[in-house]
Design a protein around this nucleic acid. Structure first.
Lengths: 357, 357
DNA sequence: AAAATGACCGAAAACGCTTTCGATTTATCA
DNA sequence: TGATAAATCGAAAGCGTTTTCGGTCATTTT
């Protein structure tokens, strides 16, 4: 770092910049002002029993010496870290690349940051030692946990739910903790209603993996909506699309295409699966929406950018993140009862569906 | 929380579970084993001067009492937090939804987690008080910072670069700190070579915003590659695509479409801009690649999933994240010299380019 | 003028860990 | 067997805060 040395000879302020992270402590500013560290601390935390005059003096010194309290020491003393743990539970291994997860977390992040919380990603190994997510959270001293989970039964998640550490689970149902998820059932209704109104009667469903909560919910929603319209649910028209990937949707659609008696419309439990399905349709020399109507679920970024623009059920991911933040912070502040928040959903009509021929 | 109370009456182990986060400390396990906290600490940290026998005893107690060291206290004492700060600098406000950023960070995350580090998102307000990213990092006591920056000149980023806190900057160039980015220049060469070899001579460039490093780099690369082939660079064929969004690409392409003398191919500085451009082309009743060849930059997830599949320059985002982790951890361990890492790039031929008519 | 009140401030303990330094015990050697 | 070295452990200080408790003034009350 010769660079800094050279600079420092000529420019005193640059030298200070370099030393900036040699931590100035509360002692330094106590020494400078002549007050005790107690008084300094009280001034910084807006206690009433410190006169305006000394408070002003102290704050000036703080400003001048570029002091910020060490959050680690503060946390040790107060047991409040102002940090929230976040956990992704999914089997694809794509983590932050997951288009639903990252949208939700971005909304969550924006909300909690306003309240002064930082986000910290929790994993399962700390310095080589495998530990549970909960243990990691405890070890780190976070004030609460948000988990975004695609998996239905997960012992890790259950451990968190059973703990007294404030938490919120996104995209999972439980009566024992705070949960928030979209109104999947109503979403399915909207989708099927839409297809029905276009004249479709033979409707297939590309289902999400049965080990995922939303996969199961949407399958349930599909069946119930079909029943509402008095439509038959051919077992062969319900095909597994795997873990919501485009590839899974592609494979599922290929199965549907091989049938002699084909559906006229397909409702995919996720946008990526819908994209995969459309790819399979194109490859078979057929067209969307002329030969097949396709409707997705999620409304991820690119649903409106790639042709044919995908008709889909929109999840309000910002709102989900926001709500999750709300109930979590509430749980942190005053240990409220477990709450279930179901956020509204919306049909977005685009180009991938049309009336049956 | 009546739930827990009821349980605890009947089931002692469930009760323990509930109390699990009432922190068992090193004192507890000292008391239980009869050794001093010093010895316990040494046993846990693999010091040599503790006998195998007592070590075993202590580790058993640790296991039994479900003890994990409090990382906050440990950090305060050792000045090592095993946490890395990450910062997004971008003007779109999409944060984690940014397809390049989140891919890179996912790769980074996986690498550092293996070494025992946690990731913490840094923002600029701590409990209502605005502070700089650097101050926030210092305040939090992270061991290092990774910044993913799209902006060329940013005082915040410069502050970090100038600090002694180990850091790595992704997608920015500087000789004063660790940086890692793709071989943008060569990427542009590959793109133009490809178009040239297909017979294209009138090539337009949808440029990234000039305040971004990659925007400037790719513009430079475009010009230099064109020159290499002895091709003219019509000023009107270089059009600003804004902040790499689909919308920006859309608007840019519309400008190109209005010209009487149109290009036959367009090289967009980002995939999203390429998507936007293709949308504009379709809306004009024209086709890709029949009427226009389009090539992008990035190879984001959906480049290979939406029709026409996009020919593009692939950035190896996993590798970028991985390399960033490598140099950052190296900088933390032994304060090495600033390093510049340029990661290789690749042409992915797909359907959006064809030979000129 | 003495006593009571309130405003303002400091000493010290605590948070849970690491680490230095020294003490005690055990093993080793002559 | 006595001296010495090695192995094993504990006391205590320290990391940078917060917070309890009490003390010193100046001010008010009677």
């Amino acid at each position: 770092m010769t660079f800094f040395k050279i600079i420092s000879i000529f420019d005193e302020s640059a030298f200070e910049d370099v030393k900036i992270n040699l931590m100035t402590t509360i002692y330094d500013i106590a020494k400078k002002t002549g007050f005790s560290i107690t008084t300094v601390s009280r001034a910084l935390n807006n206690y009433s029993d410190v006169s305006e005059k000394t408070k002003k003096l102290i704050l000036e010194a703080v400003e001048e010496m570029h002091y910020y309290p060490n959050s680690v020491a503060r946390t040790l003393s107060t047991k409040k870290s102002w940090a929230l743990g976040i956990i992704f539970v999914e089997d694809l291994g794509i983590g932050m690349k997951h288009p639903f997860f990252n949208s939700v977390i971005e909304g969550f992040k924006k909300s909690v940051e306003k309240k002064g919380y930082d986000l910290i990603f929790l994993n399962r190994n700390v310095g080589g030692v495998k530990m549970s997510y909960l243990d990691h959270a405890l070890h780190r001293g976070v004030d609460g946990i948000a988990v975004v989970s695609s998996n239905y039964d997960d012992s890790e998640v259950e451990k968190i739910i059973a703990s007294t550490l404030p938490n919120v689970i996104i995209d999972l149902h439980s009566t024992k903790s705070n949960v928030v998820y979209s109104d999947n059932l109503h979403g399915c209704e909207l989708a099927i209603d839409h297809l029905y109104s276009l004249g479709h009667r033979k409707i297939a469903h590309i289902a999400g993996h049965p080990k995922t909560f939303v996969g199961l919910e949407r399958l349930k929603g599909f069946k119930s909506a079909m029943k509402n319209h008095g439509l038959d649910i051919h077992k062969r028209f319900v095909v597994d699309g795997g873990l919501f990937s485009a590839e899974g949707g592609y494979n599922a659609m290929r199965k549907l295409l091989q049938m002699k008696d084909r559906p006229t419309a397909v409702f995919a439990a996720g946008d990526n699966m819908a994209f995969g399905a459309m790819k399979a349709i194109r490859e078979a020399g057929l067209k969307v929406p002329e030969d097949f109507s396709v409707i997705g679920f999620d409304d991820i970024e690119l649903a409106g950018e790639i042709t044919p623009f995908l008709t889909t059920i929109k999840q309000d991911m910002d709102k989900i993140g926001e709500k999750a933040a709300e109930v979590l912070l509430q749980g942190i502040d005053n240990k409220s009862e477990p709450s279930t928040c179901i956020v509204p959903i919306e049909l977005i009509k685009r180009e991938s569906t049309k009336s049956v021929n």
